[in-house]
């Protein structure tokens, strides 16, 4: 009697597999979204995925609906942060344990997924960020952008004590605690560095995992040179204000 109870308990425990969701924000990615989703479903049929079509004006929506992809079509364009947050909300609603976010343009190689997810499963980190700067291979971005990233990375270190070298990387694996935090509070535009500060002030253990990134094949980067000055000002301020507001709240 006790023995059967024990074995059923064991079986139940085995049946508890962590639910994993891959969030793919996509804005005007008609040229790459099929490749990204097909690549993912062929290699990792065990993971669920969700395309968040951020009010694209091209054929992204038709492609996703036509192929029967799991897609949330945002009825208006919300910016990358709003799209990613939709994924986190969806993950909360559907009780996912781990989420991965990868870009819809195909620059993130999913070969690293299992190892990055294992770091979370083993409880060694709360957030794993795919970092192209831990190695020197693959697409390393332009010199100007790298300088900007180094600056933001140092700022993050000063503000939180955590050094994330590829602080603008949108390749992130997040555990259940931070799924809930990000579902409630995620920056709207240019969210990655600010989200890192949010994670750090909530006591998240952030690990970087070396990945090789590809240069995007289609579509355009969301950050043009014209916008980069605005980007740096906005992100710097946002990170500082995040840190300050948490500092005040903590003293209560």
């Amino acid at each position: 009697m006790i023995f059967t109870e024990y074995t059923t308990a064991l079986k139940v425990r085995e049946a508890v597999v962590l639910k994993i969701l891959i969030i793919i924000p996509a804005f005007n990615e008609e040229g790459s979204i099929e490749r990204v989703v097909n690549d993912l479903t062929e290699r990792f049929p065990q993971y669920d995925y969700l395309v968040v079509n951020d009010g694209s004006t091209d054929g992204t929506k038709d492609i996703c609906n036509g192929n029967g992809y799991h897609v949330v079509n945002l009825i208006v364009n919300m910016g990358i942060g709003g799209a990613v947050q939709t994924g986190y909300r969806y993950a909360v609603n559907n009780r996912y344990d781990i989420t991965v976010q990868i870009d819809g343009d195909g620059q993130h190689d999913v070969s690293y997924l299992e190892e990055m997810i294992r770091l979370i499963e083993d409880g060694r980190a709360d957030i794993v960020i795919g970092s192209r700067f831990l190695g020197t291979e693959g697409f390393q971005s332009t010199r100007l952008r790298r300088t900007g990233i180094v600056f933001l990375s140092m700022l993050g270190k000063i503000l939180t004590g955590v050094r994330v070298r590829d602080i603008t990387s949108g390749y992130r694996v997040v555990n259940s605690k931070f799924i809930h935090i990000f579902a409630q509070d995620y920056p709207a535009d240019y969210p990655e560095p600010e989200a890192m500060v949010i994670a750090a002030v909530h006591g998240g253990r952030i690990l970087e995992y070396p990945v090789v990134m590809r240069e995007r094949k289609t579509g355009e980067s969301s950050i043009t040179i014209k916008k980069s000055v605005y980007y740096m000002c906005k992100v710097t301020l946002a990170m500082i204000i995040r840190r300050i507001s948490f500092g005040i709240r903590r003293q209560k």
Binding site: H70, V71, V72, N73, L74, I75, V76, M78, G82, Q85, T86, R89, Y90, N93, A188
Partner: peptide, 13 residues
């Protein structure tokens, strides 16, 4: 509006 759009779009799915 942001929460509204997100939840509405999830419901649409």
């Amino acid at each position: 509006i942001r929460i509204l759009v997100q939840e509405l779009s999830i419901l649409e799915k």
